[in-house]
């Protein structure tokens, strides 16, 4: 497969289980090497059959938040857990401490959490600590593997807004693996759909969501707003479309259509 991800893009990577999404993202920071072809990330080039090389710069550049990242917490205190990565990459103790204190605020937790054991925190807080550990590496590329799985609806919105905020403020390049078409439509500049190990569709959300049949063949569907609009179009014989995929936009578009018919 071939895929280019331009700088500062927010890319949603979608596909059902076994479609190859997780395998793809493991290539992005060198956890897996391609059997054929190559991956270029910034200055680092990973080639099939290439020589062993130092992957540290690559791993520093690309931070992965794995599924259920809180399962990987292990240190005695939150501070130590967050410092582990930076220290491993040679950051001085004092600087790593300062970093921990900075990133804990970024994920919306109070400084007092730093001295606690990660295992005394709630599930939602543990996930934030795990995310802080990734942010402490100051990555330019953020790879998120279903970061909201298992969270309640309010927690989901909080975590996704946090990532989106970071993406914009720090001018990151973000790859979000998700099953949620709603999240893809809300945050992504581009969507890549994987199916049976191949890049199946790739484009702007508006382009992807025009392909309902193709999405359904890949075991996926369009967001609820589009589903609703299609139902309405079928019932009314109208041919409305959306410029974005929020509920507000859908309501506006339906409201205008109703007014026109009424007048």
């Amino acid at each position: 497969m071939n895929l280019d991800i331009p700088d500062e893009t927010f890319l949603a990577l979608i596909g059902h289980t076994g479609s190859g999404k997780s395998t793809l993202i493991q290539h992005l920071n060198g956890l897996l090497k391609p059997s054929a072809g190559s991956i270029k990330m910034g200055e680092t080039l990973l080639e099939a059959g290439g020589k062993k090389q130092d992957l540290k710069p690559l791993r520093k550049k690309a931070g992965i938040v794995f599924q259920y990242p809180e399962h990987q917490l292990f240190e005695e205190t939150v501070e130590k857990d967050i410092m582990f990565g930076p220290r491993n990459f040679g950051m001085a103790e004092e600087e790593a401490k300062n970093t921990a204190s900075r990133v804990i605020e970024m994920v919306g937790l109070p400084q007092t959490v730093l001295s606690k054991s990660p295992f005394d925190l709630s599930g939602g807080q543990m996930r934030r600590v795990a995310i802080a550990g990734v942010l402490a590496m100051n990555p330019e590329v953020l790879i998120l593997d279903e970061p909201t799985a298992g969270l309640d609806p309010a927690g989901r919105v909080e975590i996704m807004d946090l990532f989106y905020d970071l993406h914009q403020k720090n001018k990151l390049t973000t790859v979000l693996v998700t099953h949620s078409m709603e999240d893809a439509s809300k945050y992504a500049d581009e969507i890549a759909v994987m199916h049976k190990g191949e890049l199946y569709l790739h484009g702007k959300p508006s382009e992807i969501f025009n392909e309902r049949k193709a999405l359904q063949e890949a075991g996926l569907d369009v967001p609820e707003t589009v589903q609703f609009l299609l139902k309405w179009n079928e019932k009314s014989g109208q041919n409305l479309s959306l410029s974005d995929f929020t509920i507000e936009e859908l309501a506006k578009s339906l409201g205008q259509a109703l007014k026109k018919r009424g007048s």
Partner: peptide
């Protein structure tokens, strides 16, 4: 629902948004 950390179902949210549009 909000105080219990839950969201409203899609169709209810859309109903509310439609009302705000004067429907």
């Amino acid at each position: 629902l909000k105080s219990a950390g839950l969201d409203l179902p899609f169709s209810l949210k859309l109903s509310e948004a439609l009302r705000r549009q004067g429907v």
